[in-house]
Amino acid sequence: MDFFVESLPIYLNGAWYTLLITVGGCALAFVISMVVGVVGTLRNVLARVVALAYVEVFRGVAALVLMFWLFYALPLLTGYRLEPVLAAILALGLNVGAYGAENVRGAINAVPRGQYEAGIALNFEPVQRMRLVILPQAWAQMLPTFGNLIIELMKGSAVVSLIAVSDLTFVAQQMRTFSGQTLLAFLGALVMYFVIAQVFQFLMRLAERRANRRLGRDLDKPLFRRAASATGGTSKGGEP
C-alpha cells in the first residue's frame, strides 16, 4: 500500500502526459477524419483519390515507426527537431486520423439516399446539404467507432515512452527499476490506463445518447439514468 501512496504523484504525472498526448492526438485525428472523410465522399475523382491515398498511406504505417521517423529522421532532413510530445501527437493523430476518415466516409455513405434527395428538392447548396442534413445524421453513426479509436489512441500513446516522454508506461518502467517491485509497478500503470479509458468511455456513451436523441431515437430513455425527471422535459409523451 505504501508503494502506491508514495508513488501516486509520479503516476499522476505520467497519467498527465498520457492524457495530454491522447487529447492532442484525438484532436488532430478528429480534424483529419472529418476533412479526409468528407473529401472521400465528393463526386470529384481527384478529391477522392487524394483522400484514398491519405488513408492507405497512414493506415499502413505503424504509428511507432512514424513517430521515430518524425522524431529522429525529420531533423536530419530539415534541421528542426520536434518536441517529443509533439512528435507523438503528430504520429498518433496522423495514423488514427486515417482510420477515423474511413469511419466518417462510411457514416456519410450510410445516410439514406432519400435524405440527399430531399436536400436537393429543397434546393440546398451541396455544402449546406452536408452541414445541415447529412453530417448531423452521420454523426450518431460515427460516434461508437470514434469511441473505440479514442481508446486505441490512448493505449497507443504508450509508444512515446520510447522517445523518453515520461508518460504512464515510462513511469511504470522507472518505478520498476528504482523500486524493484515489478508486479506493483506495472499494476499501477494498468489501473491508471483502465481508469482513463473508463472516463473516455463514459463521455462517449453520453455523446452517443445525445446524438441519438437528436435524431429522435430513444427519446423516452433518460440521458442519465437517475436524473430521469430532470431531463425528460423534451418529450411530451403523447402517442402519435
Binding site: 435524405q115 430531399a118 428538392a121 448531423p136 445524421q137
Partner: peptide, 15 residues
Amino acid sequence: KKIGMVFQQLNLFPN
C-alpha cells in the same frame, strides 16, 4: 427553385 417535391418515402430530416 421553382419546383418542390414530396416523396413516397417521406424523407423528413430526423435531425
